[in-house]
Amino acid sequence: MSTATTTAPTPGGTRRPGARARTAPNRPLLGLLGIAAFLLLWEATPRLGVVPERYFPPVSEVLLTLAQRALTAPFWEAVGHTLYGWALGLAIAFVAAVLLGFALGAAPRVRAFTTSTVDFLRPIPSVALIPLAVLMYGTDIRSTLLLVIYACFWLIYIQVLYGVADVDPVAEQTARSYGLGRLARIRYVVWPTTLPYLMTGLRLAAAVGLILSITAQLIIGSPGIGQQITTAQQGNAIALVYAWIIATGILGVVINIGVRALERRVLRWHTSVRGEADT
C-alpha cells in the first residue's frame, strides 16, 4: 500500500480522516482539466493540418452537429433504443448471473463440474456470436439482447462465484453455532460478503453492455445509436459520425456515474466506501 507518500493517500490506505476531504475536491477539477486538454488537442489536430480536416473535423464542428441533432426527436429515439437494449440485457444477465452464481457457489461439486465449460465459454467474444444472432433473430432487438446478455453474464457470474467463495469461515461457523438456517446464512453471511463483488461485476457489465448494445446496432443494423453511426458513415457525414461517438461517450460516463452512485449507496456500510477502517 502507500508507504511514504503523504501527497496522494489512497482512501483507506493512510488512515487519516482529513486526507480524503482534502483530495476529493480536486478530482472533478482534474477531470475537467483532462477533458479540456483533450478537446483542445482534438480542435488543434485538424486545424493545424496534422490530419486532413475533411476526414477529421475539429471538435467545435462536431459539438455543433451534436447540439443540432440533440434537438431532434430521432436523436432521442436512437438513444432510447440503445438504452433499452442495454438495460434489458443487463437486467436479464444480472438476475441470471446472481441466481446461478448463488446456486452453484453453494454447491462446490456442481461448480467444479461446470468450471471447464465456463472457462471455455467465457473468453468467446460476444461479437463472434453475431452471425448466430442474426440467423436466429434477424435485426430484431433480441439479437442485441443476445450479445449484451452474453457479454454481461460472465462478468457478473464470475464475480458472484468469487464472492460466494470469499465467505469468512469464522463468520460462517459463528452463524451456524447461533443456529442460523441455510437461508438465514445466505441472507446474513453470504449475501453481504458477495455484494461488493456483485457490484463490481455490475459496474463492469454496465460499461461492456453499452459497448455491445451499440456494436450490435452498428454491425447488425438494429435501430439505435450504432445504426445511426452506420447511416452517417454510409452518407459520408463525418462530423455526424463523430457527434454520435461523443454522444456514446457521454452516455458511458453517465451510466458509470449512475452505477457508482448505486454502488456507494448499496455498499455504504462497506469499508471501501466508508473510506475508513473499522478500527
Binding site: I130, V134, L135, G138, T139, I219, I220, G221, Q227, T230
Partner: peptide, 18 residues
Amino acid sequence: ESGSGGAAIVPGVISGEF
C-alpha cells in the same frame, strides 16, 4: 429495415426475418 453493410441481409431472408 436498413441493416448495415449487408451482413444481415441474406441470413435475414433465409431466416424469414425479411
